[in-house]
Amino acid sequence: MDAPAAPFAIPDVVTLAIPFFVALVFAEMIYVRVTKKGAYDARDAGASLMMGLGNSIIGGIFAAAILAAHYAVYEFRIFTIPWTWWSLALCFFAEDFAYYWFHRVSHERRWFWASHVVHHSSQHYNLSTALRQTWTNAIGVTWLFWLPLSFIGFPPLMTIMFSGISLVYQFWIHTESVKRLGPLEWVLNTPSHHRVHHATNPRYLDANYAGVLIIWDRLFGTFVPERDDEKPRYGIISNLGSFNPFRIAFHEWAGIWRDVTHAKSMREVFGYMFGPPGWSPDGSRKTSASLKAAWAVRQSAAAPASIAAE
């Protein structure tokens, strides 16, 4: 049975948004130049934009295959959900929930991190960073996280439409030009929340995985607020030494390959592929957990000194 027909022509929101992306990056560059608030580097922005262009071209090549996977799963759906106002509302929340888990797992498991690391590999945080996207979504099978929605019975095109809306929403939050948004900070993923997400400060690591709604982080205990007394330092734990798009796209995959081919057991193979980023058999490399633990030790060592000083 075919999926229920959409009552309107489904827009390709990402493609429609491209002119706005370009205009806003241009406007932010001018704003940064004039106000000195925020930062740009031409080579860094160039690399980010090249990654975005590559993502869009490669995404177009694999789009049909991923849509076919959705329809294959949809054949086994539990419900047949129509296109109505309530199903659209439900799908919005379901897609955002799927995004949260995709994003969280992309940070916690190296296989998925190998694709997602690209987005975090800039040491800048501006609108061009939003466009620094992976080229390896298809082989990284990150699209698997949205298949359960087709299994539940949401029409695949409905899921893909909300996925596009989420992507477009997330563009504007990659900026240092917007501080905080009052009560909206409780519900929405905002520039402030997402700055924390892109930070490498131990306090901020592995936090704020939200797409559109920050409620999932609040619900699952991964929410960390931005502090005025600790400015985010952007990038990754092992920052890249290059703006070459191919190095940016494939460096973590090459790292997995190198580690797996030197592994001494199946346990090591599994750990290198699906352990937390930075996992090593002897624990000699840095993971988020080890960085947070070392930071906690430094904090507790510093605390008695500050108390004594008071």
Binding site: I18, V22, M29, Y40, A42, G46, L53, S128
Partner: peptide
């Protein structure tokens, strides 16, 4: 998109982000 990327890179260099 490629043309827009090239234009933005030129603007970034032109604005002195180097």
């Amino acid at each position: 998109s490629a043309a827009a990327v090239a234009a933005l890179i030129l603007v970034a260099f032109g604005l002195g982000f180097r």
